[in-house]
């Protein structure tokens, strides 16, 4: 626990004057004084186990007069309250305010740990009366191309007792492309998972989307096209379910206009779906086709 502000205030009250010459210290700045009082109250509330009150008072102290110790204590309480995203931000503020902090390495290790703490997601669709609702028990549910739920899995109610049916999933933090593929349709949505936090992600789809192929990606700069005509029209097949002639097939991938190696796959003809997820391994880099990681599945459905 950081009590540096309290110590600063106490020291400021002590006058170290020599007998011969008056050398008084000025009274503490009114803002430092007010921040010190809020800090002290927060400290007491924290010791009493009243974390919400302690957090509010520390935040008040920081807003009045920012200090690294206050930032640290805010982060520590946010961590204990399970608000890990806020805690990460506050610990970063602490490190920014105190670049030479003796505990820098320890805080950085803690930051890594917090940033990778899995979060949980409740995936649901709309009510049955919603035309865009998906029958989840018939669906493959994929996150960034990874199958997390297969058809035949019955959805459950949420752990918090909400009325909707869905699936509770634990996932590493990140921004995910969430997709549902059923015998009848295809839906896609974005789901953000935050460290240690629980979120609800909803997915819907048109009542019917035909096709034996689904192509997906986590990068908007990627084009997947059938031929150079589609390429020149920038008409991408990403996040679409479409018909394609059965058998061995190939689509062209373009990244920022650069040619990548073609995507090859086998198109089924018995109602199954060929699925491919193209993930960009190198974020950001531009002047060429970036390194791609392609995950393929054959999504099997009963005829």
């Amino acid at each position: 626990m950081r009590i540096a502000i309290v110590l600063v205030l106490a020291l400021a009250a002590v006058a170290a004057a020599k007998p011969s010459t008056a050398k008084r210290k000025t009274a503490p700045d009114k803002f430092v004084k007010a921040a010190g009082e809020a800090f002290g109250a927060a400290y007491t509330a924290d010791q009493n186990g009243d974390l919400p009150t302690a957090l509010g008072l520390y935040q008040k102290a920081f807003a009045i007069s920012p200090h690294p110790s206050t930032a640290y204590n805010i982060a520590d309480i946010q961590r204990r309250l399970g608000r890990l995203t806020d805690a990460i931000r506050s610990f970063e503020i602490y490190l920014a305010l105190s670049p030479d902090a003796a505990d820098r390495k320890g805080v950085e290790a803690l930051l890594d740990q917090l940033a990778t703490t899995p979060g949980s997601v409740f995936v649901m669709s709309g009510s049955p009366s919603d035309p865009k609702s998906i029958d989840l028990k018939t669906a493959y549910l994929l996150f960034d191309g990874k199958i997390l739920v297969k058809p035949g899995t019955s959805p459950t109610t949420a752990v918090d007792g909400g009325p909707n049916l869905g699936f509770e999933l634990d996932l590493p933090p990140g921004r995910y492309v969430m997709e549902a593929v059923t015998p009848l349709t295809y839906g896609m949505s974005t789901c953000i998972v935050r460290p240690g936090e629980r979120r609800v992600c909803s997915i819907g789809a048109p009542p019917r989307t035909d096709g034996a192929v689904v192509i997906s990606s986590d990068d908007r700069q990627l084009l997947v096209v059938a031929d150079r005509t589609e390429q020149r029209q920038a008409s991408s097949r990403v996040h679409k379910r479409f018909e394609h002639p059965p058998g061995r097939s190939r689509l062209l991938i373009r990244d920022h206009g650069f040619e990548c190696a073609p995507l090859t796959f086998e198109v089924p003809k018995n109602g199954d779906v060929a699925y491919a997820f193209v993930r960009v391994v190198e974020p950001g880099s531009r002047p060429r086709c970036r390194t791609l990681d392609i995950t393929k599945h054959r999504l099997r459905f009963d005829p």
Binding site: P66, I93, L95, A96, A115
Partner: peptide
């Protein structure tokens, strides 16, 4: 890390940048 003194507002933006960078953005 910040070498010079930043205002609170600037420091917040600086921290947002660090967090975004660490998060792969």
């Amino acid at each position: 890390p910040p070498i010079e003194k930043y205002s609170v507002e600037a420091l917040t933006k600086f921290v947002d940048a660090v967090i975004a960078d660490k998060a792969g953005s």
